[in-house]
Nucleic acid binder design. Structure first.
Lengths: 188, 188
DNA sequence: TGCAGCATGTAATTTGTTACATGATTAA
DNA sequence: TTAATCATGTAACAAATTACATGCTGCA
């Protein structure tokens, strides 16, 4: 699944401009898909050329015209077909794990810092997902809740794993003592 | 971190040919990094050109000469530097979650099939990792064990999450009829 | 005064995937 | 006889990232 297809999918829920789609990538989709303007704008242009979306320009003062894209019938059909096509991939790419694999080449301070950073990143992810779940509310589509829940559980599992197994990588197994005074909340 | 750097890292443990490195990508690194011959061979050629590895050709009958690459001192320094450089990324890319987000556009049979397939993929991953952990034994480097454990825990968490939350996506919440009676507990 | 938000896009570069091309040996 | 394993590579293609390019508004 490429950025183009995902944009089409987002537009099947609600019309939007490129800027807004980017916001969605950064909120709901953050933990499993990312896209920058450099992918989104060309994708929308392509979709419009293919007749899968229609574009309506809204004039604004002091800003570029807002281009609001709306999915067409042809677009809906194309997207449903895209959903059924390929057996969907699910792939992690982790430099973090690669570095940990070679952690015997690093000094302990460095390893500890990387572990702490990663735990923090996971905890931030959990918080981020919790906040969007709150925003969504209970009447949110099932798919959105399922996907958010998945992200939260996996991030939590990652943080917990590191906390429980960091002793494998450091002689002292030092916990996060070196964190300055911005208190880090417990793993929840 | 690109394929080139990871190849260099692998060679810091043990000299190898491209074919062997590919095997390592498919065993130890499978759950967090992937690379095909199309990336590996050019990467090795580049490394040799830069003097980070040395190549020794071993003649064979009926096969192309085996090119065994060995890291140089310069290569070791470059790799250690690469390890320290960037704060390492850890990024999931999941078409599976994207499709689930839009699962209301699919019929239940299709959704159930996708969920079952994903659970199976996660379970296969756990098994695969367990088998390489067994192969490695207890005297394996700490980094290798840490990384393998991480993969197993995350895959298990993913499978458990789907099992416990599939009811969100399907009216009937049909479980896997093809699985024998082993009840799956809630998350964690 | 400076930064964040809104809003668009292009172009160069990097990176990796896929298909192509070859070919012997061995086990099922 | 068919597939898998060993073993190398190139070339075309696809895709996404990054840097560049513009510019107003409103807040601190």
């Amino acid at each position: 699944m490429d950025v183009k297809t995902l944009c089409l999918g987002m537009l099947s829920n609600k019309e939007a401009c490129g800027y807004e789609l980017k916001k969605t990538f950064e909120s709901l989709f953050k933990h499993f898909f990312s896209a920058g303007y450099g992918s989104i704008y060309p994708a929308l242009a392509d979709l419009a050329t293919s007749g899968l979306v229609e574009c309506r320009e809204i004039q604004q003062t002091g800003k570029p015209d807002r281009k609001v894209y709306k999915i067409t019938d042809k677009g809906r059909i194309a997207f449903e077909k895209a959903l059924q096509n390929n057996e969907p991939r699910h792939k992690l790419r982790s430099d973090f794990l690669a570095v940990m694999y070679f952690s015997d080449l690093l000094d302990e301070g460095c390893v500890n810092r990387l572990l702490n950073d990663r735990i923090e990143a996971f905890e931030d992810a959990v918080e981020h997902i919790n906040s969007i779940e709150t925003e969504m509310g209970l009447n949110a589509p099932a798919g959105a809740r399922f996907v958010a829940g998945f992200g939260a559980v996996i991030a939590k599992a990652g943080a917990d794993y590191i906390e429980s197994n960091r002793h494998l990588l450091t002689e002292t197994g030092s916990a996060r003592i070196d964190e300055p005074a911005h208190s880090v909340q417990g793993t929840t």
